[in-house]
Design a protein around this nucleic acid. Sequence first.
DNA 1: CGGATCGTTGATCAACTTCAACGGTCGTGG
DNA 2: CCACGACCGTTGAAGTTGATCAACGATCCG
Lengths: 195, 195
Amino acid sequence: MQEGTALLKTHISKRIFLEDDEFEHFLSFFSPKIVKKRQYIIQPDFIPSHRNFVTKGAMRAYIIDASGNEHTIQFAIENWWITDYNAYIYQKPATMFVMAQEDSTILQVNRENEIKLKALNPKFETFFRIMAERSTAYMQRRVIERLTLSAEERYRQFLDKYPLMVNRFPQYSIASYIGVTTEFLSRMRKDRLGR
Amino acid sequence: MQEGTALLKTHISKRIFLEDDEFEHFLSFFSPKIVKKRQYIIQPDFIPSHRNFVTKGAMRAYIIDASGNEHTIQFAIENWWITDYNAYIYQKPATMFVMAQEDSTILQVNRENEIKLKALNPKFETFFRIMAERSTAYMQRRVIERLTLSAEERYRQFLDKYPLMVNRFPQYSIASYIGVTTEFLSRMRKDRLGR
DNA sequence: CGGATCGTTGATCAACTTCAACGGTCGTGG
DNA sequence: CCACGACCGTTGAAGTTGATCAACGATCCG
């Protein structure tokens, strides 16, 4: 078994129960890939072929808007999935960049294999259903936070929820994730937070 | 067959293929409910027992934040699902209100029946997986819009995407959905939009 | 008819952005 | 192994966007 599959196995077993041979079958559809820091696995205008599970390192998905500003959509470190979700699901050209923030290793399924997996075993289908449900819930929480909290509160929540992310991603990317400019985050940290 | 199930049947058949008896089986887990204007089907602190499919009328999910301001999380008219997603999925106390904006009719599944359905037939599981995947994609688009667009652009997009919603929900609820105050939306409409 | 509900308008204010400049650090090539 | 440039965070000053508060008018419905 490849390096890193142990992490994915644990990840899966927290969501569904699989027999050993089912695990092996499931994992056989994934292939490992090494990505060097600053290298891209998804770029705008190309259809993203894979859903990616990070087994080592740190990756980041972001968009560049009409005025050239960068907005972080998602962070991913070990045990997180990352892709341009819309583009991957509907197999349309990506609008995001997904970039390695550190030298990383990921496990990839491509869209065809994912579809095969879902058809192969109802448990696999269940796994993807649970993932999607939780993602929806997660994204909805993010929408709610954006509607109801101030910039400072959003930053505090971020520190609280993702303490492991804080030191592995540049500050400007965290600023753009919570929806403020680098400068303003810098000022908040200086004026209002004890760090 | 109950009134309204025809809508749900069409809705399902756009996502998965079912035989007639499977349809009937699926639909037998749902029950219709009539909700009068201004009546609530979900309230904070109560665990939401149902996922709701609107067959007639209009419903709205919103949150009241710490300073007493209302924020619309979701609109639903005919053929839309609505619930407090986080609370329903994890069976925790709701944080949202879900209210009928017009006299409405909905079809309800409760959590236990939904779980039974998923276990009963892999196709049913697939249906819920597809719903969840699309919801994730949808919510992610909303996050991206909020990060990259101005208030005016968000309102224009709303008009563009949900022309049917505009006349069925009060303006302040649309304002809070796109993340501005009623007053500011009113001014935008006056100053900058031809209506 | 009368109150609730909703949208509008004006004046002022706060949150956050923009632009420009600077300083530190880190990694890479010569 | 040093120097230089990229990268990143910080700071200041001024500008915008959108919020807040208060008042008013219209409409709808019972």
